[in-house]
């Protein structure tokens, strides 16, 4: 009997996983729809939106500059290492510019935001849920989704493209400095490569990706935190899940969007 139940649990495991994933997807989508609807209905939470914009955007700028600069610097080094073999050092600037604007800026920028902002959103909302602060909002006739979730999702969706731009710009500065001061590439050659090969569509495609990443990151983090149960362990689990799920979704959606964008160009 025990062997039978063991095998049946193994056989049922994939179905359970699918059921769990569909359940999570359903509640997350419902949360998204409800938060979007409340975004357009009064009362407008301008103060909360500005506070979240400051937290997600302004307070993340330094992190973007730092990580962006080092990403650009290492990209220049690796680019040079490969191209030097074919005598194509002049292409370093163009290569780094394309990589940063299309992929590295939006993706690594978003992953850094997940680490800093997504984890904080999940932990804060989870802690609010467990200390009855969300119940307190409801008891005061305040819609918690409108007050807590809508401003976070809106702020992240608006802030991410700007943060990705800052990341890419800092990366280009880093790459320029390494290329000209350390690798001995002529400054004019570096910039000519960037001008000749970087198309405005590369930047806009990167920005479109950032908008989607911002929405995904905030939705996953808010969803995990808002429905967190089980005390401090539950909050810890929600925070971890938010970071892991958001990071994976960013990479998967990046691939899907890149595929679509390749087709359209």
């Amino acid at each position: 009997m025990r062997t039978l139940s063991f095998f049946s649990s193994i056989l049922l495991a994939p179905f359970e996983l699918v059921r769990f994933c569909l359940d999570e997807l359903g509640t997350a989508l419902l949360l998204l729809v409800r938060s979007l609807m409340r975004m357009v209905l009064p009362p407008y939470r301008v103060g909360e939106f500005v506070r979240q914009l400051d937290f997600v955007g302004a307070q993340t700028v330094l992190l973007m500059v730092l990580t962006g600069a080092f990403t650009g610097m290492v990209s220049a080094l690796q680019g040079y290492n490969g191209m030097h073999r074919y005598g194509a050092e002049s292409m370093v600037g163009a290569t780094v510019a394309l990589a940063l604007s299309r992929e590295l800026g939006p993706v690594i920028g978003a992953l850094m935001v997940v680490a800093r902002v997504g984890s904080a959103m999940a932990a804060e909302l989870g802690s609010m849920r467990n200390s009855q602060q969300i119940d307190a909002l409801v008891s005061m006739a305040v819609d918690p989704i409108q007050y807590l979730i809508s401003p976070r999702i809106f702020a992240a969706t608006v802030a991410l493209p700007f943060l990705a731009l800052i990341f890419s710009f800092a990366g280009m500065v880093g790459a320029y400095v390494v290329s000209t001061a350390y690798l001995g590439i002529d400054a004019g050659t570096f910039m000519a490569g960037v001008r000749d090969y970087l198309d405005p569509s590369d930047i806009t495609q990167g920005l479109i990706k950032s908008v989607v990443f911002g929405l995904l990151m905030a939705l996953v983090s808010c969803h995990k935190g808002y429905y967190a149960t089980g005390g401090s362990r539950g909050v810890a689990a929600a925070t971890t899940e938010a970071v892991v799920v958001a990071s994976v979704l960013i990479l998967v959606s990046d691939y899907l969007m890149t595929t679509l964008m390749f087709r359209s160009t």
Binding site: M128, S131, D135, A136, M140
Partner: peptide, 19 residues
């Protein structure tokens, strides 16, 4: 429900003050 809740005050177990 919110119309009714505006007539309420609630003191939660751990006060549930906003951090």
């Amino acid at each position: 429900l919110n119309r009714i809740r505006r007539r309420f005050g609630v003191l939660f177990q751990d006060a549930a003050l906003f951090d």
